[in-house]
Design a binder for these strands. Structure first.
Lengths: 233, 233
DNA sequence: ACAAAAGTGTTACACTTACACCCATGT
DNA sequence: ACATGGGTGTAAGTGTAACACTTTTGT
């Protein structure tokens, strides 16, 4: 029975990666960067970082995101530990991966650019180094599940948005399409949205402007407290 | 930026734990053992094992289960990596945890006893060493989710079982009760069960014997291929 | 005027829930 | 005979899914 650790069992290294999802009103996308240094120099990777043996990966991941985005206090959700041997050619490295969602804005975009990060559409992820494609798929599945149970719009949409925006977001995240009338009915019935009296043109092509809505955060909080399940399949 | 591993980053050790669920017709239960050796000598733990830096935790977990149960080829599902610093007083240890479900039988019980493992009811888990209570809770939540989406009876019930058995199993796993008529209607409509012409007395107290059913594995396989969701909330 | 997307209701069906009594058997 | 769990049906309500046309605005 192997239950006692001897000193030479302590030979593994830790890393953390964070899958970041954003939504531009049209498409769901995720952050990647070009890997610097060997191995895999120049390959695409998910934002990642070494974790020292004394550190908490959640803390390190938070620091990493803060540097990348210029914003702090992230609601990171843990994805999993990726632990296959040989996933890293340098040695045995365990990756503790997280994901989060983010609202896009200009300051953010500026910071991302400065730090060398790029958005790629989450339905067309390029080949990534290590097992990062696996981590990415895992994150997409998790987001899907999340979307089915909780209205995620809060964290991905701007403060005001159209019903078409949010429908599009759900369609991207779940990889299917919905009937406009049924979607609206369901969403409005939930009372999670508040009508504003603002209108916006959703694209160049659109002639008629569409109404802006915002989230009813109070309603959302009371509902989640009661163990509300949104359940959009 | 910390992206290059130096040799002294490789200072972490690995372990794996497996949460095993079983069902005796009345209650859902899970395997624990008494810890041998320091630290936490004599405390209850989830079946666990060291993983060397060159090994695959999934493989090691499988070996561990094979030893404990005397059966091989486990369908282990990965739970998560538990990676908080200081979760193990001996040093930095990452635990890659799995869970599985098992059909009880006599050979199994005999082997468990021989290896020093004991069942505890999964709604009354004792205080466990390390962060094993956290892992256990995580596993219970996962089982719950699993039960909601897929008929788990296959892996937990004997080949033939009564409708009351399976209802009881669902009630244990989900921590709620169901209306007998509605439960039966739903289950039978799914066509996942085949009526046998066998009857059994479900307990000493029961006078009238109840009908045995078995799983319609073919139906199950075609349904899961089509992306079937059982969805019992 | 026309092009483009915004917006709007109804109906049929499926599923869920609530609910109470008789049945078969062993003691 | 009685105690114990086994077994059964119906009706109301709720949610889902399918469906097509009119409105508003910019060009």
């Amino acid at each position: 029975m192997r239950v006692e650790f001897s000193p030479d069992e302590f030979k593994v290294a830790l890393a953390t990666s964070v899958v970041v999802f954003g939504f531009d009103g049209e498409n769901l996308k995720t952050l990647v960067a070009k890997k610097m240094g060997q191995p895999f120099e120049g390959a695409w990777i998910i934002p990642s970082c070494i974790v020292r043996a004394t550190e908490d990966p959640a803390y390190v991941a938070n620091e990493l995101l803060t540097r990348i985005t210029g914003q702090s206090d992230w609601m990171l959700e843990k994805l999993n530990g990726f632990a296959e041997p040989y996933r890293n050619p340098v040695g045995r490295v365990i990756n503790i991966a997280y994901y989060c969602t983010i609202r896009l804005d200009e300051a953010l975009e500026h910071n991302l650019k400065k730090e060398g990060y790029t958005w790629v559409p989450s339905n067309a992820i390029p080949r990534l180094a290590y097992d990062h494609n696996e981590i990415m798929e895992y994150a997409k599945e998790r987001l899907k599940r999340r979307v089915k149970r909780r209205p995620i719009g809060f964290s991905l949409l701007p403060a005001e948005f159209t019903l078409n925006n949010i429908q599009r977001l759900y369609e991207c995240a779940l990889g299917k399409t919905f009937d406009k009338r049924n979607f609206r009915r369901k969403l409005l019935k939930s009372q999670l949205l508040l009508e504003t009296d603002q209108f916006i043109r959703s694209s160049e092509r659109a002639k008629r402007p569409s109404r802006l809505y915002k989230f009813n955060e109070k309603k959302y909080r009371t509902l989640t407290l009661k163990g509300y399940d949104f359940v959009y399949q």
